[in-house]
Design a protein around this nucleic acid. Sequence first.
DNA 1: AATTAATGAAACCAAATGGTATCACAAACG
DNA 2: CGTTTGTGATACCATTTGGTTTCATTAATT
Lengths: 106, 106
Amino acid sequence: MTPALQPAFRALADPTRRRILRLLAGSEMTIAEVSRAFPMTRAAVRKHLAILEQGALIDSEPRGRERINRLNPNGLRPVLDWMHELDAAWDDRLAALKSAIERNTS
Amino acid sequence: MTPALQPAFRALADPTRRRILRLLAGSEMTIAEVSRAFPMTRAAVRKHLAILEQGALIDSEPRGRERINRLNPNGLRPVLDWMHELDAAWDDRLAALKSAIERNTS
DNA sequence: AATTAATGAAACCAAATGGTATCACAAACG
DNA sequence: CGTTTGTGATACCATTTGGTTTCATTAATT
C-alpha cells in the first residue's frame, strides 16, 4: 500500500502543526507539554496532534494517564519523494527545452 | 525577505493543485488547457491556479486573450528546505539518543 | 478515600475552502 | 461586423477547518 499523500500534505498545511513537528524533533512530549507551547487550549492542540498522526508524521502512545507523542522519522518520506519527483520532471523538461534551443540555433 | 512558507504549504495541501503542478511540469498551459484535464469548471481551476501562484509555485502571464501558466522552478525550494531541516533535526536527535544509550550500556 | 491532573469525547461556532453560476469584456476569426 | 472563445470578477452555497466549552473518565498524589 503506497502511503496516502493527502493526509500528510493536509497535516503540513497548518503553521501550528509545523511548529509542533519542530518541537517534537527536539524530544517526545505529552499532549499537555506540547500545549504549553501554544496560546490555545489543550483540546485544540490535541486535535492538531490527531491530524499529524493521521498524516503518519507522528506516533502517539498512552503511558499511564498521559499520552506521549513522537515524530515518525519515516513520515516525511512520501512527501519528500513526491516533491523530488516533481523537481526531476521539471529539470528534465528544462533540459529538453535547452537542447531543442541549441539544435535550432546551431 | 525569507519566502513565506505558509502560502506554499497551503497550495500543496489540495490534490487537484498537486495534479496541476505535475501537468505543468510537462509543459506550460493556458487556463483553458489546464481546466480540460479536470472535471470542474474553468472558474474553479482558475482559483486553484491563483492559489498556486500565491504560493510562488507557478508563474502566470497574459498572452493575447489567454493566460499561460508555468511552473516556478524555485518555488519548491523553501518547502524542501523546511523539510530537510526537520529531517536533520530528527537525525541529530536520534544520533544523540543512540550515543547516550551506548554510554549507559558500556 | 478524596483530590488533582491528563486525557477523551462531544456539541457548538465563525471563518476559510472548494466548488458553482452568472455577467461583462477583450481578443481572434469567419 | 458579428460571433465565438478565453478570461476576469462577483455573488452565492455546502462543507471543512481551527478553535472553544463542557463533561466524563482515569491515573497519580496526599
